Every structure is written in structure tokens, then in C-alpha cells.
Computed example of a mutant assay.
Amino acid sequence: MCVFRYGANGMVGPISALESYVFNAFRLNGRATRSEYVWPALAYTLLLILAGVADAMTLVAATQDGGMPPLSPLAYWSVPLFLLCMIPNFTVAIRRLHDSGKSGAWMLVMFVPMVGGIVFLILMLLPSQDRENAWGQPRGPSSDSGAPRARDHKASALDSYALLLQSEAEPSPEEVARRKQEVHEYFLRNVSRRTAS
């Protein structure tokens, strides 16, 4: 799992955004902030422009002497780039829609003639919902309190030592009773249903 670094305003840096883009390439659920969408989109656009220039140079070189342009799609840079980035582009856009509180079905707006692309771009730039929605908690520092979230806490060697000391401590009678109650409830909820059916 990737550790994301958020700035003071909740924005993800370019390296963290690209990590999220790559490591969450096959993940449709969850949320992605604006910067988690914009940084990879900018990198992809720049690479696509460079690939287009390289493809144009390939075509010019091939047809300069009256020859035929290469027919293999792998002779061009833009085709493999598109195929490589097709799934991550799709999934990060779905997660971006989730972050703004929209269903992934809003991706279909791209198929509306003439205005679909503009509406899609507006949807990608909508602000994040600052509360939990159907797809999880908001990413980054909490906007409703100044205290950082537990997942933003930097682990240290002292944390590991404290955890080790806690594991060796005897649980209190209240803790033992609470654990027994949790096991009992789990058994009633999950195990007893299976045996009854």
C-alpha cells in the first residue's frame, strides 16, 4: 500500500499522485482528489504530445523517399501509450467522480456530442466532498478539525515499542469481557447463520 503525502491544503504532490495512478490502476472503488487526477492527466497529455511528434517524424521519414508508412500499430508510440494508460485513466476518473459525490455512471457523459467533453472536464474539476460519502472517507487532512487523521501519523520506532509493551500487558477484566462479547456477537452474526441454513 502506498503512503500518500498531503500538503497543508490537502493537495497531493505529483509523485504521490503518480504512485496512486499506477498502484490503484485496477481499483474502481474509493476516492481520488483533484490533484490525484490532474497530475497524471498532465503527464499523460505531455507524453501523448511527445508520442504524436515521434509518430509524425516516423511517417515523414517513411514517406520521404516515396515509401509506404508502417502499417503495424506498434511502429508508432501513441498506440502503445494509449493502450498502457487506458485502464488507469478510466479508473482514476471513476474514483475522481466518487470523490465529488457522483456515481461512476457519469463517465457516459463523454458520449454526448459536442458538450460531453466539456461537462466531463467540469466534473473532474469539482471540489472533493469534505465528509464521508458512499465511497469512503475524504483523502488528506481533515477539513473539519485541525487534528491529523490516524492514517496521516508517521510511524516511529517508539510506536513499535509502545505496541510491543501493550501486547505483553495483561488485559483488564473489562477488556476481557468486551472481547468475549465481541466474539459472541460475531458468532451469532456470522457462524450461527451458516450452521442454521
Rank of each mutant, 00 (worst) to 15 (best):
E36Y: 04
P40S: 10
A43W: 03
L46S: 05
L46F: 15
L48G: 09
I49S: 07
A54M: 14
D55I: 05
D55P: 01
V60A: 15
A61W: 07
A61T: 10
A62T: 07
A62L: 06
T63W: 01
Q64G: 15
Q64K: 14
Q64I: 00
G66K: 05
P69E: 14
P69L: 11
P69R: 07
P70H: 06
P73Y: 07
W77A: 15
L81S: 05
L83R: 03
L83D: 03
L84G: 14
C85W: 01
M86F: 15
M86G: 06
N89H: 10
N89W: 11
N89C: 14
N89R: 13
T91I: 03
V92Y: 01
R95K: 02
R95C: 04
R96L: 02
S100T: 15
G101K: 08
G101H: 07
K102S: 05
A105F: 13
A105T: 02
W106E: 03
M107T: 00
V109I: 15
V109W: 07
M110K: 08
F111T: 02
F111Q: 00
M114V: 15
V119E: 01
L123F: 14
M124E: 01
M124K: 04
L125G: 03
S128G: 11
D130P: 08
D130V: 06
A134V: 09
A134H: 10
R139I: 06
R139Y: 00
G146A: 11
G146V: 07
A147E: 14
A147M: 11
P148A: 12
A150H: 10
R151W: 13
R151E: 14
K154H: 09
K154P: 00
S156C: 12
A157I: 12
L158F: 09
L158N: 09
D159N: 12
S160D: 11
L164C: 04
L165Y: 06
L165I: 08
S167D: 12
E168A: 13
E168N: 02
A169K: 15
P171L: 12
S172D: 09
S172H: 03
S172C: 04
S172F: 05
S172W: 01
P173C: 03
E174D: 13
E175G: 07
R179K: 08
K180S: 06
K180M: 09
Q181M: 13
